[in-house]
Design a protein around this nucleic acid. Structure first.
Lengths: 214, 214
DNA sequence: TTCAGGTATGAACGACTGTTTACCTCCTTG
DNA sequence: CAAGGAGGTAAACAGTCGTTCATACCTGAA
């Protein structure tokens, strides 16, 4: 988790949501993500970023309006790709709460395991965005939570799930699942831990236990 | 979670692990915790801290060797009080894995809910301590995790628990429980959410589900 | 060939960083 | 009453921060 070089290059070189950015801008993003991951955004200076990609400080401002902009683009991209991953996982999936909940959780976990460094930066740093941007991100996070809690609610309604927490059960359990799953990005190391698919399977099983699936 | 005033005064004024500190030092700690919670330690300056408790910057150095020292004392204190809380919860508790696991989880959650701001600062900022101090804290966190995973292992051995994850099941489930529970401090708001005891009860139930308790 | 536009430079800006220093004012103790 | 230490102040330290600017380069189009 600390100190090892995180290679982001491929992630940003071929990201479908970032085609409009120049290669240099993507290199800035990749480097920023790696540094933000290791030291936090507040503790990373513009000079750190630019010197790590062979630039001088001023050059960054040819691609981004500010350092805050770099962080926002990162957080934006992280959320967009997670949302897309989940949406893709739900098309052509049997329309029962249990199956859809499983698919949803699996995609959510995979999103955090495939690029744990980016996922962690997103999760840790969105709090420090400017208020307007922060609000926008919070809304998207709430929307994700709402998706999951609605699946849980539906499952409880037809007695496939047995939720802890009474009337608030759907949200309560959704938060439990999201918190448990999103934290994987903080300790996951592909060299030490199980492959993502296997781990994701275990987290799906765990989520179903939390939901009280029969 | 953002912007509302967090009142730490009582926490530090009467903390049993901090008697050796002067009242002024405790006021510095209380203010630092509140500011670190809202903006993060890296984004909080010594002048922010001191001006918020009616001091000039130099005065801080009558009580702490450095700004890093302030953070370390906070993190130290947070861990110590959590460890004490858990230890206290386990004395005179029936010696069965299920009961002890329940007591352990309840204490762990309560530690995060009673002073969520402090808990969140501890969890978020210990990563940025100097390497030696970071290592010391990591060891203590591992020890906590070990306590829980041993309870789970014992419960699985006598077939009270049915753990996900095969051979690594005890650690896998322990991480799930710890991640799920420790994140409560990030969203818990005593004015909006259930009282701590009630919420802790729900999290104990959730942990037992994760452990596959019969 | 000329011109324009995107990109990089290196120096500079003022503001702010953590910390140190010299000095002052109390309160306590001998 | 004298001495001394604890705890406060104001000012300054050397760096670093994010950002701007005038300038230069390189590339592709007219």
């Amino acid at each position: 988790m600390r100190g090892e070089p995180a290679v982001f290059e491929e992630v940003f070189a071929s990201a479908p949501n970032l085609e409009h950015l120049s290669p240099a801008a993507r290199r800035v993003l990749a480097t920023s993500a790696s540094l933000f991951y290791r030291r936090g955004a507040a503790a990373t200076s513009v000079r750190d970023i630019t010197s790590a990609c062979g630039l001088t400080p001023g050059a960054l401002y040819n691609h981004f309006a500010s350092k805050d902009d770099v962080l926002y683009v990162l957080v934006e991209h992280g959320h967009t790709s997670l949302e897309q991953r989940i949406a893709a996982a739900l098309v052509d999936v049997e329309d029962t709460p249990l199956v859809r909940t499983s698919a949803w959780v699996r995609a959510y976990v995979m999103g955090h395991l495939v690029h744990p460094e980016l996922a962690q930066v997103v999760r840790r740093e969105y709090l420090h965005l400017s208020p307007a941007r922060y609000d926008r991100i919070v809304r998207r996070r709430r929307a994700l939570r709402h998706q999951l809690s609605e699946l849980l609610r539906a499952g409880a309604a037809d007695r496939n799930f047995d939720l802890i927490g009474g009337g608030n059960g759907a949200i309560r359990v959704a938060v439990m699942v999201l918190d448990m799953c999103s934290r994987t990005s903080e300790w996951y190391d592909p060299r030490r831990n199980d492959p993502p698919e296997r781990l994701a399977g275990q987290y799906v099983a765990a989520a179903l236990r939390l939901a009280g699936a029969r």
